[in-house]
Design a protein around this nucleic acid. Sequence first.
DNA 1: CCGAAAAGTTAACGGTGTTAATTTAGAACC
DNA 2: GGTTCTAAATTAACACCGTTAACTTTTCGG
Lengths: 206, 206
Amino acid sequence: MNDAALRRFHHGDLRRALIEAALAAPDIETLSLRQLATTVGVSAPAVYRHFESREALLNTLADIGFRRLENDFAEAFDPARPAMDAVEARARLMRLGAAYLDFADAEPALWRLMFGVNAAGYRSAATPDGRTTTYNYLPLALQDLHRTGVVAAPPSERDALFAWSAIHGLATLRAGAVTAACGPAEEVAASVVKHIFRALGATEPA
Amino acid sequence: MNDAALRRFHHGDLRRALIEAALAAPDIETLSLRQLATTVGVSAPAVYRHFESREALLNTLADIGFRRLENDFAEAFDPARPAMDAVEARARLMRLGAAYLDFADAEPALWRLMFGVNAAGYRSAATPDGRTTTYNYLPLALQDLHRTGVVAAPPSERDALFAWSAIHGLATLRAGAVTAACGPAEEVAASVVKHIFRALGATEPA
DNA sequence: CCGAAAAGTTAACGGTGTTAATTTAGAACC
DNA sequence: GGTTCTAAATTAACACCGTTAACTTTTCGG
C-alpha cells in the first residue's frame, strides 16, 4: 500500500477531515464526537480508526495549536538569532506580545483548549522535541532585554512570572470574554508590553 | 407552611446539600448531576425541584463564588472608606492581589468555574445589585493610588486593563496548573503587585 | 485472482441531562 | 383527628454521549 493510498480507502483522508472540522467548531472542548463524525459524513466508531479516544483527538488539536503558536512566535522572534541591539530587543518583546494576543483573538476556541480548564492535561502535548517551545520564548526575550542593556539587572524568575502573567492574563481575558478588554489587539498588546517594560525598570527608548 | 418547614419536607434542605456537595467536587464544571444526586442520597430528577437545569446550578455556584471573592475583597479593602494615605493605598492593592491569589489557591475548582471556559455565561451571575462587585475593586484601588499621590497621573483604562491582566493572569496560571507559578501565594502576589506599582510609575515607598 | 488487512459499518452498553407521570409525606383546615 | 391539598420526592422513559464488539466492505500485495 503506497502512502497516497493509505488515506484514500473509503473516505479519503478522514483523519485530516476530522481535524479540520474539529478546528472549525465554535467550542472545541465540548465538541461531540458523534456530531463531528456526522458532519464529516461518517459513523461515530470510524473516528476510532484514527484517534484512540476523544481525549486523544483533543490532545492532537491542542498540539496543532501549540505548533501554530510557536510558528507565530518564531516569526515574531527568530530564536536562532539571539544577538541584537536594544531597539530590536524591545521590538521583539512587543511582537511577541502582539502574536500572543493575535492568536487568542484569531482562534479563541483553540486558545481555550490549549490554556483552558484542562490545560494541565493538554500541556503535555506541547512538550518539545528539540524545537523552541511556547514556554521558552518569553525567558529568551527577557534575557535579550538584559543583554542589550534595556534592563540593568538580569531577569529573575519573578520577573518572568510577572511578564507571563500580564500577557497571558490579557490574552485570557480576550479569549474568555470575561471582559471586553477592548481595542485592537496590537494596540492593547503594545500597551501591556510597555507596562511590562516599565515594571522591569527598562530604559526609555531612544 | 412556615419558612423552616419549607426546606424540611423529605430530605431536609436538599438545595443546600446539593450546593455543598457540588462545591466539594474536584471539578465543578464537569460534575455529573446524577452522581451529585446519588452522593446526596436522592434521585436525579429531585435536583430539578431546586434548580431549573444543570446550568442553573452551575450559575448559582458561580454566583456564590463571586460573593465569596467580593467578601474577601471587602475584607482586604473596605470600599466604603476611600480616603487614606499613600502607604495605605499601596497596602490595599497588595492585599487585593493577595486575596485574588489566595482565592484561586484555596478554591481552584470554583475559580475555574468563575473564570474558565464558560465564564462569559457565568459572569452574568455576578451582575451587581447595589453592592461593590468583583470588577469594581481594582479601578477603585488605582484611583486611590492616584488620589494619595502614589502615582502622578490618573489611571487610564489601559492602566486598569494591564493591572487586571497581571493579577488575573497570575491567578489563572496557578488555578489552571499551566505552570508551577511556584512559591507561597502571598509572596508571589506581592512580587507581581510590586511590578504593577513600578509599571504605573509609582513613587518608591517611604 | 485471492487472501490479508485496512477502513468502514451496525448493534449495543453504560452513562448523561432532562421530562412526564406518579407516589409519598408534611401542612392546613374543618 | 381525619381529610385534603400540595410540595417534594419517586420511577420510567427519551435522546444523546463516548466507547466497544462483531461484522462487512474495500483496497492492496503477491
